[in-house]
């Protein structure tokens, strides 16, 4: 059991590294040895590199959406419709009404002069290709908003609970427990259906609902991180020199505790997007025709008896969503291995 006795803490790892006379890069100097180890660990396994590549592709698609699929009409987030017929059209069907301008890559790549429905249309002639490309923006938007908001709430509540302890801690953690008892998807569903009549159909009802029922995990993580850092010498030193509580918490403890939470949280974007897509699949959220993957998938619900004929409504947006989530999961997996000291060096 020798390996159990030398669990490397940040300090003696630093010691080992100075001993080995290794060059310290600028990145390491900025992040500090612990955080540097996390960042480099993320780029080590092939799985996580595939993950990063997937995420990068989606980022590029989101940025270059207007180039890939030139917007039609004033609101690019509205999927362009080719007429109003209920019957979905297969991939390659000719685009008759509302034809968008042809992007530069189209003719060289396909040898075609006319713009077609590359991935087919859903009922109501919504173009699936546009839904997927512009839906990437919706995915990042929802993911980032929810993650930032839940982390903020979680960090504030978790750090207050950990730092003050006693009844404050007890109260906050019991509230966290109560929120955790409730089933996430059902509560998000309920809250967004309460909010929809008040706020109207938009991204906000599901977003607010997901924020309200999504912060608990972060509160717990940051609390336990702070509890361990609270006992370090530099905190004692700050306290001894008369620094105020709030300042100790936000200037001394949090910056040292927050990095793992932030990285974990940024990888939570995949789960958030999955949850959001599930809600819009169930018919909650944006108005019909908004570029959003869950929305496009929900069109398939009316065609389950003939899905073999209309497979393209499920397969293309479904795979897009899966690859998006998989990208974040692959990186997240590498992250877990880096953060969990018991797993280090083994796999």
């Amino acid at each position: 059991m020798t390996e159990m006795t030398t669990i490397p803490s940040g300090d003696n790892q630093l010691l080992e590294e100075t001993k080995s006379d290794r060059k310290i890069t600028w990145l390491e100097r900025i992040l500090g040895p612990d955080n540097y180890r996390i960042v480099t660990g993320l780029f080590k396994t092939p799985a996580s590199i595939i993950g990063f590549v997937l995420i990068l592709i989606f980022i590029l698609v989101a940025i270059f959406a207007p180039v890939i699929a030139p917007p039609v009409g004033s609101d690019p987030m509205k999927i362009p419709r080719d007429g109003f017929s209920g019957e979905p059209k297969g991939p390659g069907a000719e685009w008759k009404r509302n034809v968008p301008e042809i992007p530069f890559w189209y003719t060289p790549l396909t040898g075609n002069e006319e713009w077609v429905h590359l991935l087919g249309t859903a009922q109501g002639q919504y173009d699936i290709f546009y839904g997927i490309i512009w839906g990437t923006r919706t995915a990042f938007q929802t993911g980032i908003i929810v993650v930032v908001a839940t982390v903020l709430i979680g960090v504030i509540l978790g750090s207050i609970a950990a730092y003050y302890g006693g009844w404050v801690d007890n109260l906050i953690m019991r509230i966290t427990d109560i929120f955790m008892t409730l089933p996430y998807i059902m509560m998000a569903l309920i809250f967004s259906s309460v909010l929809t009549p008040i706020l109207g159909r938009s991204l906000w009802p599901p977003l607010i609902a997901m924020i309200t029922f999504g912060w608990m995990g972060y509160a717990r993580i940051i609390r336990s991180d702070i509890l361990s850092i609270k006992e370090r010498d530099f905190v004692l030193a700050a306290r001894a020199s008369g620094v105020k509580n709030g300042r100790i918490l936000f200037k001394h403890i949090l910056p040292n505790a927050i990095f793992p939470t932030l990285v974990l949280a940024s990888l939570g974007i995949g789960d958030v997007v999955l949850g959001f897509a599930a809600l819009s699949f169930l018919g909650i959220g944006t108005e019909i025709g908004y570029a959003d993957w869950g929305q496009v998938l929900s069109f398939a619900r009316n065609w389950i008896t003939v899905l073999n004929r209309y497979w393209f409504i499920v397969v293309y947006p479904g795979l897009t969503l899966t690859f998006f989530v998989m990208g974040w999961n692959l990186v997240g997996d590498a992250m877990r291995d880096v953060l969990d000291p018991r797993m280090r060096g083994k796999s």
Binding site: F281, T322, F323, V325, N329
Partner: peptide, 23 residues
């Protein structure tokens, strides 16, 4: 395990319906 956790239930469900019911 990685594919399983990334595959959204409703996409998986719709694919099942496509293969085992619609066909």
């Amino acid at each position: 395990s990685i594919i399983g956790t990334s595959f959204p239930t409703f996409v998986f469900g719709l694919l099942l319906l496509m293969l085992l019911y619609a066909n």
